[in-house]
Design a protein around this nucleic acid. Sequence first.
DNA 1: GCAAAAGTGTTTTCATTACACCCATGT
DNA 2: ACATGGGTGTAATGAAAACACTTTTGC
Lengths: 229, 229
Amino acid sequence: MPFQNEIYKSAFSVDNVIFGFEGQNLKVLLIRRKDEPFAGQWALPGDIVQPDRDLDEGALHVLNQLTGIENVYLEQVHTFGKVDRHPRGRVITVAYYSLIKISDVTIRAASFADKVEWKEIRKIESLAFDHFEIMHACLKRLRLNIKLRPIGFELLPEKFTLTELQKLYESILEQDLDKRNFRKKILSMNILKSFNEMQQGVAHRPAKLYSFDAEKYEEAKEKGFIFEI
Amino acid sequence: MPFQNEIYKSAFSVDNVIFGFEGQNLKVLLIRRKDEPFAGQWALPGDIVQPDRDLDEGALHVLNQLTGIENVYLEQVHTFGKVDRHPRGRVITVAYYSLIKISDVTIRAASFADKVEWKEIRKIESLAFDHFEIMHACLKRLRLNIKLRPIGFELLPEKFTLTELQKLYESILEQDLDKRNFRKKILSMNILKSFNEMQQGVAHRPAKLYSFDAEKYEEAKEKGFIFEI
DNA sequence: GCAAAAGTGTTTTCATTACACCCATGT
DNA sequence: ACATGGGTGTAATGAAAACACTTTTGC
């Protein structure tokens, strides 16, 4: 086998596009690389896959190192394997995205990163390796999935207002939605539970708080309900 | 590192689910394995990825070896990497599917296969490794994509009748479609060209022949047309 | 009392569904 | 002449889109 004795001999890695939502903006968790190649540049968090670790576990491990959290929505998107995508040799990478609630985590630097930060996705202009392309492939997939599965809630705090949910959809889909139609549609699905609890300390009429009701959703699904925005 | 000195030490491969359509049935091209493990069993055609070959090329190479053809619709679906998916060590495999016109090709055995055959997808009950699962992941993806992109034509001869097209959709989606509504929808898209040519030698009124007009489709797409069945 | 976002229904428009009979050909 | 699939239109239904004003709070 070729490359038998090289460190970077055909290796595979996982990269994880970690999405979060804050202040009406979709964000991505990036690291600043400590080492060459691309030292000092922003990149997606990723890691070489250990021979005794499943791919999904590898992606979760990366996330766990940066945030300490364990249970998150994770989805495999695509595998990038161009021969020359890594300057040091053949590295095939499996791209994942995760959805997390920014307010629930505190990020911390990891061994492979010098700095870790949430970046607004719309302001990112380039990344190390082919990570910019990877990020966009994941965003594209997220756009598709968020319309067909109730995963948007993964990005919001446990309790949220309907307007927050709408803003989330608008920022991911990059299109404005009609307030009345959006609320009508979501509420008619019957997959939210509401509380007798209101938003606090806002300088306007406070909004009602809701949360996603996974049980109701499962029941509805049994009966043939199909989520669609 | 485990598997350090074995041939199968962390390797990656591609597997290609090659779909074809014949006699109102969706089929898949399978090989019968010559060697252990799983010698004598049916499996998806696949190969180890050479270090100097892109993943897509790897998938096309497999197809080319079995059929001799080169230009086909190819799509990456998912990467399977469970630690124990291969009995001889860690092998991560990238799954693709291809769509080909059965009538255009003659299949031939390849070095790694003892026999190569088109099998009706509905009659396949098990495959070597985790190939059954892989095949179904690809079928699921095909079902999704065929509704959103004009790729069904890849499975039909250059010229086809509307009923053939409908049967193709019905067999992939596993649901019956209304003849009048189907024709209305397809024809209203304006992405087919028709010929003054009819089906020959059938014991009923001969049907008109159509083919997919890629140019018209591209033009329509520019103007915002979105294919959807 | 003013600014700011919450909350709420009705009408119009368009796409989807359901449905049945005559036509052209081979045997 | 009969069997077989080809070809065609209209009405009913339901989902999506468009649209504007009143309410509640903090300051």
